[in-house]
Nucleic acid binder design. Structure first.
Lengths: 179, 179
DNA sequence: TTGACAACTTACTAACTAGTAAGTAAAATT
DNA sequence: AATTTTACTTACTAGTTAGTAAGTTGTCAA
């Protein structure tokens, strides 16, 4: 599952095969099919695990008790870490880019994950604006969609244009949110 | 090339094959290999055509003579049209999502295209701010990267979460740019 | 009328894909 | 001690992939 997650972020669902994972682990293809009958099952398990992980993180006091600004910094740091880890891209972006050629259950997992990320970001933005430490116009939901879509796109952009572009985008977001 | 462009935006480079195009056109695979020896050649030709088209558009008086706000609206409308056309995604996003599993020349074309889109947007933003009709903090280059990465991500987001999310993001951008 | 060339088709290859069926060896359960 | 279960391997299939080599047909120019 670790390898599958890495490969999803690196090459996308259509870009990796059981053979990649098997050879890396030193086992045979069939060994993976034993645990995950179909490729869809493997990918869905990876997404489910990520969803559980995100829920755990955001409910843990180490994130929950942070200030809104610190929460946002934590959120951006997830994506910075992806970028630093061999230019990985976020799972949501990778899967949505090839959304029309992935299995149905995987589409549903992708949608659910995206909604959860968005919901957390929306609440955090609202919390920050209510507390007067973050500034933006309009609905928190829309600003959350803007920011999430942007970091998702910026990770992809950084592959062609370099890490600096990603950092520039994050800094611009922080500048835009200044009170 | 039209079909290849559509398929790239729909399923990505690894998600379509010569067989798809051949059967749709009612010809054999080999007929396509005659014009484009390798899949890379076909994809590069599609990107080159798009780059030429974008250059032509932006140099044409129908776009060149617009006000900065109208130029931005025109820019957003390109992406709205993609969304309306069966939920297509922008070429840059599609190719960068699977950047690590596409041929080298195609990576270079992708990078060049992305730089050109970014350069135009940057100049337009600067033009608008200098004229006092658009407002933002920081460098035009960084705001351009933010906006482009965001519409790129928003088209992908809309696949899982619906067209409304895309429109919300565009409206939020306009709100953020208000003087 | 001949010859060259463009745009194919036919027929193929080698590699890779997801997925399966049957067998095996060790560990856990009864 | 006997049986079952877990986690595999071996060996395979059917389909798809990009790509090629050789032959065919229609058009156009000399």
């Amino acid at each position: 599952m670790n390898l599958a997650e890495s490969l999803l972020q690196d090459k996308g669902f259509n870009g990796f095969s059981y053979a990649h994972i098997a050879s890396e682990l030193g086992v045979k293809n069939a060994a993976i099919h034993y645990h995950f009958p179909a490729k869809e099952d493997l990918a869905c398990a990876v997404i489910q695990r990520y969803r559980d992980r995100f829920k755990l993180w955001t409910n843990n006091s180490r994130v929950k008790d942070l200030s809104p600004e610190e929460k946002l910094n934590w959120f951006f740091s997830i994506y910075s870490d992806f970028r630093a880890d061999n230019g990985k891209v976020c799972l949501v972006g990778s899967l949505e880019a090839e959304y029309n050629s992935i299995p149905e259950q995987l589409q549903k997992q992708t949608e659910a994950m995206h909604r959860e990320l968005l919901a957390w970001l929306q609440v955090t933005l609202k919390e920050g604006r209510d507390a007067g430490v973050i500034n933006f116009n309009g609905e928190p939901a829309n600003k959350a969609a803007l920011i999430l879509s942007s970091v998702q796109g910026a990770l992809q952009m950084a592959r062609a244009l370099g890490t600096k572009k990603f950092r520039d985008v994050v800094e611009q977001h922080k500048l835009d949110l200044v009170v």
